[in-house]
Design a binder for these strands. Structure first.
Lengths: 237, 237
DNA sequence: TAGTGGTCTAGACCACACC
DNA sequence: GTGTGGTCTAGACCACTAG
C-alpha cells in the first residue's frame, strides 16, 4: 500500500475517533511528517485526500482544521461511492437482471458518435430490467461496441457486466460522462417498473470510458422516481 | 500565475491546436520538464490537471496520450463548467429573478441539521423564480443562515446571490453536496413554470459549503423537465 | 517575528511495458 | 535492458496569518 494512502487512512480514522479536538488545528504538516516518518510532500499528499473528501480544510498561515459536522451524517465518502455500475452501488443487496432484449446490430449515427465508432461497427443493443432484492428497480438500455467486449453472453448479462469487463477482460474503467434528467414514463417503464401513466422517470444518460480514452458503453438508465436519486459531490476548481 | 497552471494552459492549447499527433504519446515528462524549465514534479502536476479534465491519459511504462475525441464535441471542460449558481452556468444569457417569498424565520429541525445550526438560529427562507432571457426556468427554494450572509436584500436577490457572497462578502465557496431526483409537479411549479399537471420536475437538493467547512445554503431547485438536465463527469478513484 | 500551508526543485528508486 | 510514469525525499523559498 502506498505511503500516502496509509497516511490518509490513519488520519481518517483518527478524525473519526475524535482524537483531535474539533476546534483546533490538527498538528502541522512538518510535525505529522516526522511522526509518520515521511517527507512533508508525502504528508501533504495524504492530507490532500482528506481535504478532497471534505473532512479537512486548510488555511494558509493558520493550519489544517477538521470540517464541522464532518461525521454528523453518513454522507462521508460520497465521492468514492459514486462508482460505476449498479452492482457496485448496492453491495449488500441481491441484484438480479432480466434480459428484455439482446441483439447485435449496426448503430445509428447518434450511438456511433457517442461511442466514437463508425456506423458499420457492430454494437450490442441490450435492454435489461435490474431488480434489487427481487423488486424492479431500473431499466437499462445499453450500447457497447461488440468488438470491444467479446464473449458477452446471457450468463454474464444475468450478473454484472462491469465485473465481466474489469475482471474477465482485464480492462480498466476510467470514468464516465453523465446527463441526468426527468422525463415522462413510457410503455416499457410502466410495464416493467410498475409505474403509472403520470409517474415521472429519472433518466441517466451515460458514456463510459476505459482508461485508454475509448468509449465502451452508451447507456440510458430509467429509474422509478420514488426509488432512486443521484448523489454527487461538487468541489470548486 | 503558478507555474503548473502555466504549463497546463500551454499544453491544453497545444492539444487543442493538434500540435501533437493524436495517435502517439506526447513527449515524456522529463523532456517536457526540460522544455518548460521546471522539475519533473511540476511538469507532472501541470499534466495532472489535463488528465482530470479528460484530455490526457497515462499508461505506466508507455507514455501519456491524448484522449480520443477529446475535442470531438463541446463537452470539454465539463468538470470546470460545473460551477455553483445559475448565473455562472449561463454566462451569455440574461438571468433575472422574481422574488416570490423572502422571510427570516427559525429553521425546522431538518433545515437546521443540514445547515449544522441550532433551531434557534434564524435563517433566510427564500423562494425565487429564475428566468433565462425572460423565460421561466427554475424555482429555487433556499435556506441560508442569516448571520452568515448579512445584508441580503431585494436588490441582491434580483441578481446573483453567489456573486454577493463571493465578491461583496469576500467568502469562498468550496463546493456542495447534491441529490438529484425526479418528482411530480406541485401547484407552485405549475403556476410559475407553466407546466402541466402530469409534467415531471427535475429537483436538485443541495447543501453548499464555504471553504471553512461551514454550510451556507440548503436549497431545492425545481426545473422544467424539458428545459434542464444535469451534466457531470465521474472519474474512478 | 514566528509559524503555517503553497509551491518548486533535483534528484532517487520502483513498477510496468516493450524490445 | 531501456524507457516510461508512480512515488518519495530533503530540502528551499514564498505568501499569508497571528501576536
Amino acid at each position: 500500500m502506498k505511503k500516502y494512502e496509509v497516511i490518509s487512512s490513519e488520519m481518517r480514522q483518527r478524525i473519526k475517533e475524535r482524537q483531535y479536538p474539533a476546534d483546533q488545528p490538527i498538528p502541522d504538516e512538518i510535525t505529522l511528517a516526522k511522526e509518520f516518518q515521511c517527507s512533508r510532500m508525502t504528508m501533504k499528499r495524504g492530507l490532500d485526500i482528506l481535504v478532497t473528501e471534505g473532512l479537512l480544510y486548510r488555511k494558509r498561515g493558520h493550519g489544517t482544521f477538521i470540517v464541522k459536522s464532518a461525521f454528523q451524517n453518513s454522507r462521508v465518502n460520497v465521492a468514492s461511492n459514486e462508482s460505476l455500475g449498479l452492482t457496485n452501488l448496492l453491495k449488500d443487496k441481491v441484484i438480479t437482471s432480466n434480459v428484455i432484449t439482446f441483439e447485435v446490430k449496426f448503430p445509428n449515427p447518434e450511438v456511433a458518435a457517442r461511442l466514437a465508432i463508425d456506423i458499420s461497427t457492430p454494437v450490442y443493443d441490450l435492454v435489461r430490467l435490474r431488480l434489487v432484492d427481487g423488486e424492479p428497480y431500473v431499466i437499462e438500455k445499453t450500447f457497447m461496441p461488440a468488438s470491444l467486449i467479446p464473449g458477452l453472453n446471457d450468463e454474464v448479462l444475468q450478473g454484472s457486466v462491469y465485473k465481466y469487463i474489469t475482471h474477465e477482460l482485464g480492462l480498466t474503467i476510467a470514468g464516465s460522462h453523465r446527463k441526468i434528467r426527468a422525463c415522462k414514463s413510457e410503455e416499457l417503464d410502466q410495464k416493467h417498473l410498475f409505474c403509472k401513466d403520470d409517474d415521472p422517470i429519472l433518466e441517466v444518460e451515460q458514456v463510459g470510458y476505459l482508461n485508454n480514452g475509448v468509449p465502451f458503453e452508451y447507456s440510458f438508465s430509467r429509474h422509478r422516481y420514488d426509488k432512486f436519486e443521484v448523489t454527487s459531490v461538487h468541489l470548486n476548481k
